[in-house]
């Protein structure tokens, strides 16, 4: 196996383990920090996939902005250690384990029957991305031509989410 794939697997493994630890740590601050570790590893995976721009955004927006907010909220609200939510509901925990195992085995079945090679490649090959001048250029072109309408709809979605959040959070005027 070449170095590239090995690195990818290593980053993926760390990201996964950190994601599990987000759920299992008793201290909420630790959870947030493990989440940070997950996000940084995901960013590294994006770099390996030659999606440098997405990697930078991942670090800036998720690791930088959003997780800092998380950390603020956790530090302001949470006092001390929390009980593990998983262990409080034995019935739910058992059902979750069973459903989770079924889902994982389904995924494993699909991946192991080697169907990935049977898929069809998307139109954006590395050559085409290089032809328009690189990652950011290709993304910008796509966003404002092919994906123009979804882009605009996303702006409406953000607007209504902001209006709703402000309404629910504000004191009555």
């Amino acid at each position: 196996m070449e170095l590239h794939s090995l690195l990818f697997l290593a980053f993926a493994a760390v990201a996964l383990i950190a994601a599990v630890l987000v759920l299992l740590s008793r201290n909420p601050v630790h959870s947030v920090l493990f989440m940070l570790l997950t996000f940084v590893n995901v960013a590294a995976m994006f770099v390996l996939l030659q999606a440098e721009f997405i990697a930078v955004i991942q670090i800036l927006v998720y690791s930088g902005a959003i997780l800092v907010l998380f950390l603020f909220v956790v530090m302001l609200l949470a006092g001390g250690e929390r009980p593990l939510p998983v262990l409080n509901q034995p019935l739910q925990a058992r059902a979750a384990v069973i459903v989770g195992l079924v889902l994982v085995s389904e995924l494993a079945l699909v991946v192991l029957t080697s169907t990935v090679g049977g898929g069809r490649r998307g139109p954006d090959s590395p050559e085409r991305i290089a032809a328009v001048g690189g990652n950011i250029e290709a993304l910008g072109r796509q966003l404002y031509t092919t994906w123009l309408l979804p882009f605009e709809i996303a702006s409406v979605l953000l607007l209504v989410a902001a209006v709703g959040a402000i309404y629910l959070a504000k004191e009555d005027l």
Binding site: L107, V110, T115, G118, G119, R120, P123
Partner: peptide, 29 residues
């Protein structure tokens, strides 16, 4: 769906899914 069919457009997904082949379990998932 995008990973397997290479498209997010309904008509192209339909044309790929109609072929079947080795990727069928993934489309099913």
């Amino acid at each position: 769906t995008y990973g397997v069919t290479g498209s997010t457009r309904f008509d192209q997904i339909a044309s790929f899914a109609a072929q079947g082949g080795a990727a069928r379990p993934a489309v099913l998932l």
